[in-house]
Simulated scan of single mutants.
Amino acid sequence: MTNDVSVDLIAEDRFAPVVDAFARTLDETDRSGAALSVWLDGQPVIEARGGTADERTGSPWRPDTLSVVFSCTKGLAAIAIGRLLESGALPSLDIPVAEIWPEFGAHGKDRVSVGDALAHRAGVPAPRVDVTLEQLLDGGEFARIVAAERPLWTPGEAHQYHAVTVGAISAQIVARISGLSLGGFFASEIAEPLGADTWIGLPADLEPRVARLVQGQPAEASPPADDDPDAEWLERAVTLGGAMDPDLLGPGEGFNDRELHAAEIGGAGAISSATGLARIWSATVAETRGVRLWSTETAEAIAQPRSVGLPFFNNGPGPYQAWGAGVMIPSDWDPYLTPASFGHDGAGGQVAFADADARVGFAYVTNRLRDMDRGISVVTALRDALG
């Protein structure tokens, strides 16, 4: 274990190799950092952190440091929808989204089920119209744009990752059923009961706790062919035609911007500590701090495989991700802990999930973008430790 790692908790000696694996992910501690939290049977068993939260000041990663967790937000939105399913306010994942949000039924999307929409099967991963940052930050306006889109394929017949647009769908489902915004419902039903430092829409007074994101090395990949018709759609799924930069940070502030931290961007904008994220996932599979968010039946319904294998666009060679209703499920892309795992990774290298069989809640949070292998390597060490 390196001196750059502060260990707040190792409940048992068998977890020491997991912390060692975590320490090995901190190879740029002068500019970035990370935190790890693991809960077992509703109790914390590992809390560790290390590296730098803000390279401009050299401030270290502290127990209460927060970070943007990018697409881990999709998993949190799925937890919120699971709460609605649990209570009966959402009768089934198989009802059409348009029964909840009538405008979404435009252009043949009227039969898209909630489950299929959350599993990236709705056919609207990227808008044809250029979306501005202002429109993205205005959740209602962005939702209007998504609802008005003509699908790129017959909904339900294929899947393609809806990198940002699925957040608008999730937010509208939650808002129209509960009467609260996604961030408001998430706070009152999930984060606050658990005392979790996790927000979809960060209050201004917490901004000083947020780690500053830094760009990692881009993954090596062959440039798309000039005649590849899918390349533009894949880029638009992230950029929305102008709202965001492809690398999420430059040339402006990107996800370091206070405006984005404050916005309730349901596909990418949550901000959390590792402990808050792991505690929330723990509560989907085990009573945690007196709270159980989901029953076994709800977890099984959300995690049921819906989208696996080759996506609609040419994403290049596998491995490919797999999804249930709003959650990533084990695949060659990320095997997680066991076949009973479900959660969501983030573009910044974050990994967060629960495992129903092992009764684990896990979160690896970092402010250095890219390199998913870091978090996955820690999960591998945990799998070995649990036997």
Results as ranks from 00 to 15, higher is better:
246 P>F: 04
160 Q>K: 04
8 D>F: 01
323 W>S: 03
117 A>C: 07
10 I>E: 11
352 A>G: 13
222 S>H: 08
54 D>H: 13
127 P>R: 10
228 D>F: 02
178 S>P: 00
7 V>W: 13
129 V>F: 00
15 F>W: 08
314 N>D: 14
64 D>W: 07
178 S>G: 03
171 A>Q: 14
71 S>D: 05
321 Q>C: 12
247 D>L: 03
250 G>P: 06
343 G>F: 01
56 R>H: 15
109 K>Y: 01
7 V>Q: 03
229 P>S: 15
119 A>I: 01
25 T>A: 11
27 D>M: 06
242 G>S: 10
207 E>L: 11
160 Q>N: 12
92 S>E: 14
86 E>D: 09
327 V>T: 13
295 S>F: 05
231 A>D: 10
215 Q>R: 14
317 P>K: 14
239 T>P: 11
200 I>G: 06
261 H>P: 11
181 S>I: 02
234 L>T: 06
47 E>M: 14
307 S>E: 03
181 S>D: 10
323 W>N: 04
239 T>D: 08
256 N>G: 06
385 A>L: 10
6 S>L: 13
247 D>R: 12
332 D>F: 01
306 R>T: 09
257 D>M: 04
164 V>P: 01
32 S>F: 04
262 A>V: 14
245 D>F: 11
222 S>W: 10
110 D>P: 04
150 R>T: 11
67 S>Q: 15
292 R>M: 10
78 A>K: 07
181 S>Y: 00
54 D>S: 08
346 G>L: 05
90 L>D: 12
257 D>F: 02
330 P>I: 02
19 V>H: 09
223 P>M: 05
221 A>Q: 12
233 W>V: 15
171 A>S: 15
76 L>Y: 15
348 G>E: 04
282 S>G: 13
123 G>W: 05
61 W>P: 05
208 P>G: 07
69 V>W: 00
212 R>D: 04
322 A>W: 00
45 V>K: 02
272 S>Y: 02
159 H>K: 06
1 M>W: 12
49 R>G: 10
248 L>N: 11
51 G>M: 07
60 P>T: 05
231 A>T: 12
284 T>K: 01
207 E>V: 09
82 G>R: 01
230 D>T: 15
358 A>V: 00
111 R>H: 08
195 G>T: 03
95 I>M: 11
206 L>G: 10
46 I>H: 00
177 I>H: 07
154 T>D: 15
182 L>D: 05
71 S>H: 02
13 D>M: 12
338 T>S: 11
28 E>A: 11
3 N>C: 13
194 L>E: 13
340 A>T: 11
172 Q>W: 07
100 I>K: 02
28 E>H: 14
63 P>Y: 03
305 P>Y: 02
89 A>Q: 15
86 E>K: 15
292 R>W: 10
82 G>C: 03
294 W>C: 06
369 L>K: 09
141 E>P: 03
233 W>H: 13
365 V>S: 03
201 G>M: 05
309 G>V: 00
107 H>F: 15
320 Y>A: 08
88 G>Y: 05
307 S>F: 00
90 L>E: 10
257 D>C: 06
157 E>M: 07
383 R>G: 13
28 E>D: 11
33 G>T: 06
335 P>I: 00
152 L>P: 07
254 G>D: 12
278 A>V: 06
231 A>L: 07
165 T>K: 09
97 V>Y: 05
129 V>W: 00
174 V>G: 08
31 R>F: 13
138 D>C: 13
138 D>Q: 08
25 T>I: 08
355 D>Q: 03
302 I>P: 01
364 Y>H: 04
